[in-house]
C-alpha cells in the first residue's frame, strides 16, 4: 500500500513539474518570439511596399557632402529614422550588407530648412529577416515618410559613396526597412 502511494506521488509531482517547465518555456521563449515576429512582420510589410529615391552627392572643398533623399510609401504616414554613413566606392556592390565601422557626423533638414530632431540609439538594429545588422551607439534623425530630406554629411571625399538606411521602430524593435546609396555624379 505505501509503495503505491509513493509511486502515485512521484507521478503527480513529475506531471506538475513538467507542466510548469512547459509553461515556463512558452512564457520565457515563445511569447517574446511572438512579439518580435509580429514586429518583424509589420516592418517587412512596410519595407516591401516602400521605395527610396536619392539624388546625387555633391561635395564641397571642405569635404561636406550633400544630397536629397526621399522615403516613398503613399499608404504609410508614420515616422522613420534615418542613418547616413560613408563607405569606399568599391563597396558599392555590397551596399546592402555593409555596416558602418566609422560614423561621420551628419545632419538632416526638412524641406522648410529646419533641422530634424536627433535621437540617440543604443539598441540593436535588425534587418527585415530578424538578424542583427548593427548594434552600437548611434545617432539617428527622426523623419517622415513621403517628405524629401536634405542631408549634409561631413568627412566624405569624392571616392566615397554614402549609404542611407531607413529604420522604423516596431514594438520597441528597430528594423532597417530600406537602404540606398548615392555617389558623386560622373558628369
Amino acid at each position: 500500500m505505501p509503495s503505491e502511494i509513493t509511486s502515485e506521488i512521484i507521478l503527480i509531482t513529475l506531471v506538475v513539474v513538467l507542466g510548469l517547465a512547459v509553461a515556463g518555456f512558452s512564457f520565457a521563449f515563445l511569447v517574446p518570439q511572438i512579439a518580435f515576429s509580429n514586429a518583424q512582420n509589420l516592418a517587412e510589410n512596410i519595407a516591401s511596399s516602400s521605395s527610396i529615391s536619392v539624388g546625387p552627392l555633391l561635395i564641397n572643398s571642405s569635404n561636406a557632402g550633400s544630397f536629397v533623399v526621399m522615403l516613398y510609401n503613399p499608404a504609410f504616414n508614420g515616422t522613420a529614422y534615418v542613418l547616413a554613413f560613408a563607405a569606399p566606392s568599391y563597396l558599392e556592390p555590397s551596399a546592402g550588407v555593409y555596416t558602418p565601422s566609422t560614423l561621420q557626423p551628419f545632419t538632416v533638414y526638412w524641406p522648410n530648412g529646419s533641422k530634424a530632431s536627433a535621437v540617440q540609439i543604443s539598441s540593436p538594429i535588425y534587418d527585415v529577416s530578424g538578424k542583427i545588422l548593427y548594434s552600437g551607439h548611434v545617432t539617428l534623425y527622426k523623419v517622415n515618410f513621403n517628405t524629401p530630406l536634405t542631408i549634409v554629411i561631413n568627412n566624405v571625399n569624392s571616392n566615397d559613396i554614402v549609404i542611407i538606411w531607413f529604420i522604423v521602430n516596431e514594438g520597441g524593435y528597430l528594423f532597417r526597412i530600406g537602404y540606398t546609396y548615392t555617389g558623386v555624379p560622373t558628369t
Partner: peptide, 8 residues
C-alpha cells in the same frame, strides 16, 4: 546646390 548643401 548652393556650394555646400541642397537648398529648397
Amino acid at each position: 546646390y548652393n556650394g555646400s548643401m541642397w537648398v529648397p
